[in-house]
Amino acid sequence: MENKKINAGITVFPGSNCDIDVYYALKDVFNINVTFLWHKDEFHNFKKYDFIVIPGGFSYGDYLRAGALAARSRVMESIKDYAAGGGIILGICNGFQILLESGLLKGAMLTNKSLKFECKDVYIKNTGNNNQNNPFTCLINKDAVLKLPIAHHDGNYFAEKKEVDYLFSANQIAFQYCDAAGITSDESNPNGSIKNIGGLFGEKFNILGLMPHPERASEKILGSDDGAKIFNSIIYYVKNK
């Protein structure tokens, strides 16, 4: 199957600002068909989309809590149905926050421990033990380290200890912040996330919430093309499913 036959949807909320970046990456770098999904619109033709990306930004100005208002928008109602049917969803940054707020992923985001807006390249480690069976890391080796940029103020992932233990045991922790050598420590934790968690799978592995921005690292010219590994995984998975 050619990439051209793959269809992706990108949600757009008031305040989304990475929607165009994701559009560019998917369309121009990976040659995929892309449609924007406006926050006010429902959609029911779930088969039309091979995967959906909820991009980063500041939906609704981060009012109330980051992602809280977007999570209650009409398009998210459709996305919940899409997810229930096994649809593939990648939430990046604010998209991750929206997935948490909508209950599609477990946990919550707090303000960064540093209190700063953190905007820099970080390393994340592919923690997952379920690489072959999920759309997002099927082409990435276990414990492989990716260099990706982060840009957020509320990326301090929190869940109760019991919940975190469960998520690890269920292999739902996708990525952890680490150093270039793949060692997780407080120094390599850019925002205070519990257990350095930077990426989280849904329980059926069709959803990934990811704090760093793979779309900003999909070409060498941007300093890293590690982000392409995630998109290539999705493309590979979609073609071979």
């Binding site: 707090l110 303000t111 209190l115 929190f158 205070g192």
Partner: peptide
């Protein structure tokens, strides 16, 4: 309000 056991960086600042 944030729960007692949750760190409040804003409060700390």
């Amino acid at each position: 309000t944030l729960k007692d056991e949750v760190l409040d960086p804003q409060g700390k600042a």
